[in-house]
């Protein structure tokens, strides 16, 4: 039986894999790698001095710093609320739960420009309840909270569902109260998923553009994020400067992605 499979193994399984690999490499190189390589390569076109001065200008630094801080804030908030909401979706029961659960993915499905407009409707100048935070740093935070909402929730939900209930019962039988069970038994097992979701959220947040365009006012040194700064540089016919900042931004995101994989492996070391 197994020799038969071995004889056949050359044909069905091996070849499509090879074809797939060839096509994938070609496609990815053309569509993804080539353009990104251009950004990296041409960012130093004006010389390293030009690169450095583009990246270290006051406005650039301010934009990058603001981006980092507000993305971090949004990530932390959504990590906490995301875990809470995941808990409610998995362990609680109430009418309309399924609809709410499905709507969590709305920020994934909704165009970012519409997201911005949506938040502006309630929290901008035309707000029916008089809350107007448009053109403030809080508005940027709001936009980022919106677009990164689903990441941690969707990362934590499957882990919570799979969690061995008997571990919790064992802790109860040993005398732990509900709070202890959550903090000492449940939460530690959720941390890898929370971190993974948070990393994805962060990577998304630092590059976010569409939802911030309308609501932030793009005020330099105040509400201007890195992506808007890059946009302005392109508009001002300074693509090389824009490329320099982009490289810094990309490095940040790449570092985060590598971090995710590392975290994932570290978290899995306990698994059966």
């Amino acid at each position: 039986m197994s020799t038969l499979a071995l004889n056949l193994r050359g044909r069905p399984a091996g070849r499509p894999g090879a074809l797939g690999l060839g096509v994938s490499t070609l496609w990815l190189s053309l569509i993804v790698l080539l353009p990104l390589a251009a950004v990296v390569a041409r960012s130093t076109e004006g010389g390293l001095d030009a690169f450095w001065s583009a990246v270290s200008s006051r406005q650039a630094v301010s934009a990058l710093r603001f981006t980092l801080l507000v993305s971090l804030a949004a990530t932390v908030v959504n990590a906490v609320t995301g875990t809470l909401i995941a808990w409610v979706l998995v362990r609680d029961q109430f009418r309309g739960k399924r609809i709410v659960g499905a709507l969590i993915d709305l920020p994934f499905a909704l165009p970012t420009i519409v997201a911005g407009l949506t938040l502006l409707a309630l929290y901008g100048p035309t707000s029916p309840v008089g809350i107007d935070v448009a053109f403030t740093q809080f508005a940027v935070l709001l936009a980022l909270l919106f677009v990164t909402l689903p990441f941690v929730i969707r990362a934590v939900q499957p882990v919570l569902i799979e969690l061995d209930r008997e571990m919790e019962e064992a802790a109860l039988s040993l005398g732990a109260n509900a709070r202890t069970v959550f903090l000492r038994v449940i939460l530690p097992n959720l941390v890898p998923a929370i971190l993974s979701g948070a990393a994805l959220a962060f990577a998304r947040a630092v590059g976010e553009f569409g939802s911030i365009v309308l609501i932030s006012g793009n005020i330099p040194f105040e509400t201007q994020v890195a992506s808007m700064f890059i946009f302005k540089q392109i508009e001002s016919d300074n693509p090389i400067g824009a490329a320099a900042i982009s490289v810094v931004l990309m490095l940040l995101s790449l570092l985060v992605l590598v971090g995710i994989r590392g975290l994932g492996r570290w978290g899995a070391r306990h698994d059966r």
Binding site: I230, F231, P239
Partner: peptide, 17 residues
């Protein structure tokens, strides 16, 4: 990568090519 790159940078990349 497309998940991690800001959309503006994508546009920039295409301009540079």
């Amino acid at each position: 990568l497309p998940f991690a790159i800001s959309p503006v940078v994508v546009g920039l990349a295409l301009i540079l090519v």
